[in-house]
Simulated assay, not measured.
Amino acid sequence: MKFLEFTTLDSINLFLNDLNLGESTIKGSLEAYSCKPTSVDRRISDNLEHEILDYLSQSADSDPSSPVEYLSRRSSRRTLIYLVLTLGHMYPDYDFRAVQAHLFFTEEEWDSFRQIFDTYLFEAAKEWFQLNGGSLLECLEKAIDEVIKLEECEVYSYNPDFDGDPSIENGAIWSFHFFFYNKKLKRVLSFRCCCLSNLAIDGLPDEKMLEDEGVDDGLFIDMDM
């Protein structure tokens, strides 16, 4: 895997790098990688492939929600390995296991991405319009299409446990992570974004934040972040 530089992504990355919205800050980035493996990638790929095959040989799980059926297909294993390798390059200190990682990847459509965008980035879109004019979503779609060709892509969201997400920082309110994979181009584009509380960033203890906002701790029990 090799990081690829595209000037078409620069303006969006610069805008989302550290977008202060007053009470919160959004941090997002678009990163493109070639699927052409390095010697290290080949070794990791072989290890991941053996891990998956060992899992399949030992598994008699007929549960439809298990990864057995998906991982039995070679093309699916190859896609998963590319996604795991991409994560590994983005978070080199984090240990990703292929079988486990599969449980956190969900195949999506562009409409799913639009819904996430409308839900979480509407304030960012307002800021973009004031600074640049036009639509942030349309600019994102154009940039992503130039790099990865959306019509030819498979789209995946990555949704690990909140505590086990390597992209989560202190004070995180929400985060999302999408991958766009083009088999023909042998290329993966990652779009990750998170929102951080500025109170937490400034070092205000969580208990003080809740007290000042008049929020009962019990309201956060069992909340799905």
Rank of each mutant, 00 (worst) to 15 (best):
F6S: 05
L9I: 06
D10T: 15
I12S: 03
I12G: 04
I12D: 03
L16T: 07
L19D: 08
N20E: 11
N20P: 02
G22M: 14
G22Q: 13
T25V: 14
K27S: 08
G28P: 06
G28I: 05
G28D: 01
S29V: 11
S29D: 11
S29W: 09
A32R: 02
Y33I: 06
R42E: 15
I44M: 10
I44C: 05
D46P: 03
L56H: 04
S57Q: 14
Q58I: 00
S59P: 02
D61L: 10
S65V: 09
S66Y: 05
V68H: 02
R74E: 14
S75H: 12
R77S: 04
R77T: 05
T79M: 07
Y82P: 02
Y82M: 06
T86A: 12
G88H: 14
G88E: 07
P92F: 04
P92H: 05
Y94A: 09
D95L: 12
F96C: 07
F96N: 07
A101L: 03
L103F: 09
F105R: 05
F105P: 01
T106P: 00
T106H: 14
T106V: 11
E109A: 07
W110N: 02
D111R: 09
R114C: 04
I116R: 06
Y120R: 08
K126R: 12
E127Q: 15
F129K: 15
N132Q: 11
G133T: 01
G134S: 08
G134C: 01
L137W: 10
L140I: 07
K142E: 07
I144F: 04
I144P: 06
D145K: 00
I148E: 00
L150W: 05
S157P: 03
Y158T: 03
N159L: 08
F162E: 11
G164Y: 13
D165C: 10
S167C: 06
I168G: 02
E169P: 00
E169M: 14
I173K: 13
W174H: 01
S175Q: 11
S175E: 08
F176E: 00
H177M: 07
N182K: 02
L185G: 00
L185N: 05
R187Y: 01
R187P: 02
S190P: 01
F191E: 06
L196Q: 04
L196A: 06
L199M: 11
A200E: 00
D202Q: 14
L204T: 11
E207V: 12
E211A: 15
D212C: 09
D216R: 08
D217R: 12
D217K: 13
G218F: 09
L219H: 10
D222F: 10
M223R: 10
D224S: 09
M225V: 14
M225Y: 12
